[in-house]
Design a protein around this nucleic acid. Structure first.
Length: 277
DNA sequence: TGGCAGGGTCATA
DNA sequence: TATGACCCTGCC
């Protein structure tokens, strides 16, 4: 059993704010979530400020990194609190942590996210894993399906993917998986200029500017990325009017610097909470 | 029950 | 650069 200091993380907000799709609340227990991260299944329970994770102690660094427990989010919340316009989201979104996710899983997840809703996205990814991923058992005997490897998904037929509910995204999933399986190296994009990484990602089928931005923020450590979806566009109109979208993003980057992406997630969650979603 | 929105992308003009 | 089409489920 792995034991970590939680550092103010809010599991519910972090897992259900739309950055990851394979975490589910364990209903029988208080503040307890189970999820599959690439090929590992974990159950995380929070008691006070301590996280109990049913993983071996050697994985301490991995989970600290995944949950961003090594960063001081007090700094972000301080910045958000300084501006009366962004201040309200501190209350609704405190405890959200950007999860540092696997690049391939994130790529497929956000290809699936296009013109789609969170519930259906989660269902498609679950069926994708059940169908093509390795079946495994965690330390407690819980059976789960790992996220498929690029090779496993590349071998899938678009028709079969369609049957899993992916719709017109089926061909994108298969095509992107094939490119990665054939040597398109997502990892090497870390640290290259943002414009270059975005352009490279957009050479994958089903990946446009928004999905590229999500992959960069959620999986490749581009912490200044600010993905603009329909919700964030509304937020920017509300908060930064009369600035246009580009100017508003520039203003966010100026205010938040390396915390821009995390601020985006706080504001995104705020907007959705406010609308009752 | 019908009608539309849902964390966009792609093809076409 | 600007429009529509696109699979299909969930929700009002």
């Amino acid at each position: 059993m792995l034991k970590l200091k939680g550092g103010g993380i809010d599991l519910e907000r972090s897992f259900s704010c739309g950055q990851a799709f394979r975490w589910q609340k364990v209903k029988a227990e208080e503040n307890c979530w189970r999820g599959v991260v690439k090929d590992r299944c974990a159950t995380i329970r929070k008691e006070g400020e301590i996280l109990y994770i049913n993983r071996p102690e050697e994985e301490e660094e991995d989970w600290t990194h995944y949950l961003s427990l090594d960063l001081n989010y007090g700094e972000l919340e301080g910045l958000l609190g300084q501006n009366p316009k962004t201040q309200p989201c501190v209350e609704t979104s405190a405890g959200i942590r950007l999860l540092r996710q696997d690049p391939f899983e994130t790529t497929i997840s956000f290809i699936v996210s296009a013109n789609n809703n969170v519930k259906r996205i989660a269902g498609i990814l679950e069926r994708l894993s059940e169908h093509y991923g390795d079946k495994r058992e965690d330390e407690d005997g819980y059976l789960y399906a790992a996220f498929p490897s690029p090779e496993q998904l590349a071998a899938a037929s678009a028709e079969n993917l369609k049957d899993l509910g992916a719709g017109y995204r089926a061909a994108y999933i298969q095509g992107a998986a094939e490119m990665v399986a054939n040597g398109f190296d997502l990892e090497t994009l870390r640290g290259v200029p943002a414009g270059e990484a975005s352009k490279a990602l957009q050479s994958l089928p089903g990946v446009g500017p928004k999905v590229a931005s999500c992959i960069m923020l959620f999986a490749l450590d581009f912490t200044e990325e600010c993905p603009l979806d329909v919700w964030m566009k509304r937020v920017l109109r509300d908060l930064y009017a009369p600035l246009g979208e580009k100017e508003a993003v520039a203003e966010m980057a100026r205010q938040f610097g390396p915390w821009t992406g995390a601020a985006q997630q706080y504001l995104f969650h705020y907007a959705r909470t406010k609308s009752g979603k």
